[in-house]
Simulated assay, not measured.
Amino acid sequence: MVERISWFSPADYEILLFFDACDIGATSKVVAYNIDYNDVYVNKRMRVLEDAGFFTNDNGIYELTDFGRAFLNGEVEVSEVEALDESE
């Protein structure tokens, strides 16, 4: 179960759950199509998640990092993720 993070948008959870279910490399457009969100918005949120260490991005192909997998597996403290909020 993924914990509630204050700076996550609802799309962030959907993005992470997509990669949890399909551990593949995918573009933000493919992810947006599969989670039924606007592709421009998903691209923006994936860049935020990439900056926070959840994804790598190789020429537009996003893949979960070990940190992203650990978060999805409940192995990362919420406080650690909360501290990644750059808007504060």
Rank of each mutant, 00 (worst) to 15 (best):
S28T: 11
Y62Q: 08
D51K: 13
A11W: 03
V78W: 01
A32V: 12
E88L: 08
I61P: 00
S28D: 15
S79N: 13
P10H: 06
E80T: 14
K29A: 14
I15F: 07
I61N: 05
K44G: 00
L84Q: 04
L16C: 05
Y41D: 04
S9N: 09
P10Y: 07
L49I: 04
L84V: 07
R4K: 15
V2G: 00
A52C: 10
L17K: 13
F8I: 07
Y13A: 04
F55I: 11
A83R: 13
R47N: 15
R47D: 12
V76N: 04
I24W: 03
D66Q: 12
I24T: 07
V40W: 06
Y33L: 14
G25Y: 06
N34M: 09
V2C: 02
D85W: 10
C22I: 08
P10T: 09
Y37L: 09
D12Y: 03
E80C: 03
N59C: 06
Y62G: 09
K29V: 14
D51T: 05
L49F: 03
S9K: 14
D51R: 12
L17P: 00
S28R: 01
A83L: 07
A52L: 03
E77V: 10
I15E: 03
S28M: 04
V42W: 02
E80F: 03
N43S: 15
F18C: 06
I35D: 07
F19A: 03
E86N: 07
I61W: 01
L17S: 05
L84A: 06
Y37A: 02
A83W: 01
N57T: 00
F55Y: 04
Y41K: 10
C22V: 10
G53M: 00
I5Y: 07
T65E: 09
S6T: 13
F18H: 11
E77I: 12
D36G: 00
D20M: 07
R4D: 14
W7T: 05
N34Y: 01
G60E: 12
I35N: 04
S6H: 15
A70N: 13
L84M: 08
G74V: 13
S87A: 11
E80I: 11
A11H: 05
F54L: 01
L84F: 02
D58W: 00
W7H: 10
